[in-house]
Design a protein around this nucleic acid. Structure first.
Lengths: 158, 158
DNA sequence: AGTGAAATTTATCTAAC
DNA sequence: GTTAGATAAATTTCACT
């Protein structure tokens, strides 16, 4: 599970665009196409590359509302937390979810078709999880940056 | 910019895995490989598919700290907001950024190698943006769900 | 319109070096 | 790590409904 300079550069490229051909990648990192492929294969098999996905515009498919939701529980018991984690994984409206430190327990990134749809989602969420104490919504006006692009500049050059 | 049932199913598949071959996709949606490719090409050219990316494990490359940061400004003037948007787009530590309604102005998703690294980032952020009033950090204990996978079930069947 | 099938181009995989 | 040949996939063209 070691990563060298070339791996880091490959990761940096594919995390922005994973549709570049091995040849294009090779030209950029100074490697042959098959060399690139062997490395990418390893990075995928070792789950250093966790997934390869297309990012869809929520608006283009009629999801006009994006919101960040703060969830806090009455009591943060482990079983309650675990049950909630499982529940949100199954909710398709929840795009991302983070379990965090502090006053807030969870931060969810949610999409909905419209406000009515969003309200239904929140009602359902609170109804299904009676341990929720507070549920605070921030409507996303603008998705300034969307991604999980990790900085590669600081990789240990081993 | 119309999306039919087949497009919706394709989007639903590729947003989970964009490395499936056109043939595999075709088998799942009942279309030939070329039919699939034509549709994906359109979806990409019309930016319904915004990007195709690999998701990297932050831990695997030594980014051990993930945090959600709430930013609020002294005054939410348009020029201040716009300048801040540009600034965070350039900061590689910022994986995602949302401009939101309410008390908070921005929510950032940030990675750092360690706490020291994180502290440096915050200092730099606040130093470079003197209009920031408050800056509240929630350390991510667990990334329960990571993605921008949009629900497709509710697509209008046009 | 949008589709499927064949031909072409391109990319990827499997070795051998 | 590379190069070369085999395999597979993506792209283009075209005839069809």
């Amino acid at each position: 599970m070691e990563i060298d300079r070339i791996d880091a550069r490959l990761l940096d490229l594919v995390q922005r665009n994973n549709r570049l051909s091995s040849e294009e990648l090779g030209a950029k990192v100074g490697l042959s196409a098959s060399g690139v492929q062997r490395r990418l294969k390893r990075l995928r098999s070792e789950s250093i590359i966790e997934a390869d996905v297309a990012i869809i515009s929520p608006k283009a498919i009629g999801r006009n509302v994006t919101a960040l939701v703060h969830i806090s529980f009455e009591r943060a018991r482990a079983d309650i937390v675990d049950r909630f984690k499982q529940a949100i994984c199954k909710m398709s409206e929840v795009m991302s979810a983070f379990y965090v430190t502090g006053q807030i327990d969870f931060v969810l990134l949610v999409t909905a078709n419209d406000m009515e749809d969003y309200e239904h989602f929140i009602r359902r969420l609170v109804h299904d999880n009676p341990d929720i104490k507070r549920c605070e919504t921030m409507i996303v006006l603008n998705r300034v940056k969307a991604g999980f692009t990790v900085p590669m500049a600081s990789i240990a050059f081993s």
